[in-house]
Amino acid sequence: MTDIAAPSAPARKRGLTAVDERIYRAVVSAVMSHRLPPGTRLGEADFCALYDVSRTTVRKALQRLAHDHIIELRPNRGAVVASPTPKEARDVFAARRALEREIVPLVVRRATPSSLQAIRAAIDAEEAARHGADRAAWIRLGGEFHLLLAELAGNAVLQRFMAELVSRCSLIIALYENPGTPMCGNHDHHDLLTLIENGDADKAVDLIEHHLLEIEARLHLGDQDRKVNLAEALGER
């Protein structure tokens, strides 16, 4: 499994206050948990009323959400939950596969006991979220696993590109994977770790490509149209 990760980066480091961060994380969680479907309009006035804050505070959170591709800020319509088209989804996953084909051999080449331990810890965190039935955290941690690989590859440019692609892929997964899909064990991540430990870069590349293709194949892309109560979706009522 992969997700919006990128959204896991501490929001306060990017200039958000505690209230801004609360709004930001509430929206991310609601999108990841399928409570806010694509195309849902997010009115500034609704947030102001829900959190008893100014429009300036709300706009800071919305700008951060737009930066992470969770929402789109559209002229004359305001903020809406992002709605990637099927073509955009395929393009994002194609770019992701191309990037990870370059990242994985670098991780294998640079593997150390400490980097292998970091990978194990990331897999353990995913498993904990799965056993706790926390789908939003599971998607987020799946994305963080791949971001960790990019970091361990030691190429800052690849890492920067991965941050955007993981964010967008995680959003696509959260929006278009069937909510009833069981949270399966991360066998591919475990197997990838074994291949990295064994120094088998070729098989590791084949596995990561298969892993991403399998994720993409599970998606049900299409338009969704239903009314949403923002307070209920954000868990504020």
Score class of each variant (00 low, 15 high):
166 V>S: 14
43 G>P: 11
17 T>F: 08
184 C>L: 11
232 E>W: 08
177 E>F: 00
117 Q>T: 11
160 R>Q: 02
34 H>D: 01
159 Q>L: 09
129 A>E: 02
111 A>S: 02
50 L>M: 03
205 V>Q: 07
74 R>Q: 05
68 D>A: 06
122 A>K: 02
48 C>E: 15
13 K>V: 13
145 F>E: 05
73 L>G: 14
58 V>Y: 01
82 A>S: 14
123 I>R: 05
104 V>N: 04
198 N>S: 15
98 A>K: 14
185 G>C: 14
83 S>I: 03
59 R>D: 00
36 L>M: 02
48 C>V: 15
51 Y>I: 04
41 R>L: 02
35 R>Y: 07
63 Q>G: 12
137 A>I: 09
170 S>E: 08
200 D>V: 13
134 D>L: 02
207 L>Y: 01
130 R>E: 14
55 R>G: 05
145 F>S: 11
220 H>Q: 13
179 P>S: 00
106 L>P: 10
111 A>R: 09
125 A>Q: 01
43 G>W: 13
206 D>M: 10
90 R>K: 06
128 A>K: 13
200 D>A: 07
166 V>Y: 10
119 I>A: 09
38 P>H: 13
208 I>M: 13
116 L>V: 12
122 A>S: 04
73 L>V: 14
118 A>T: 15
171 L>A: 01
170 S>W: 06
78 G>V: 03
68 D>C: 05
39 G>K: 06
47 F>A: 00
53 V>P: 10
127 E>H: 05
85 T>N: 02
97 R>L: 00
202 D>S: 10
56 T>M: 02
100 E>P: 12
180 G>V: 10
157 V>R: 10
207 L>F: 01
71 I>E: 03
64 R>I: 01
50 L>D: 00
182 P>L: 05
131 H>A: 12
223 D>R: 08
19 V>K: 09
203 K>A: 14
214 E>C: 04
190 H>M: 01
211 H>N: 11
2 T>R: 11
164 E>Q: 09
138 W>D: 02
116 L>D: 07
112 T>F: 11
215 I>S: 07
195 L>Q: 00
155 N>H: 11
237 R>S: 08
206 D>T: 14
3 D>Q: 07
81 V>S: 07
7 P>R: 10
141 L>Y: 04
218 R>A: 13
224 Q>W: 13
196 I>K: 08
188 D>Y: 08
207 L>H: 04
227 K>A: 09
183 M>E: 01
139 I>G: 11
195 L>Y: 03
5 A>N: 13
235 G>V: 01
104 V>L: 06
184 C>W: 15
125 A>P: 03
31 V>I: 10
30 A>K: 08
92 V>I: 13
156 A>W: 15
206 D>C: 11
38 P>G: 05
186 N>K: 09
11 A>W: 15
207 L>I: 01
145 F>N: 11
142 G>T: 04
110 R>Q: 08
105 P>E: 07
24 Y>R: 12
204 A>G: 07
223 D>P: 04
50 L>S: 01
60 K>I: 06
106 L>I: 06
143 G>S: 04
57 T>I: 14
115 S>D: 03
170 S>C: 01
75 P>Q: 14
214 E>A: 12
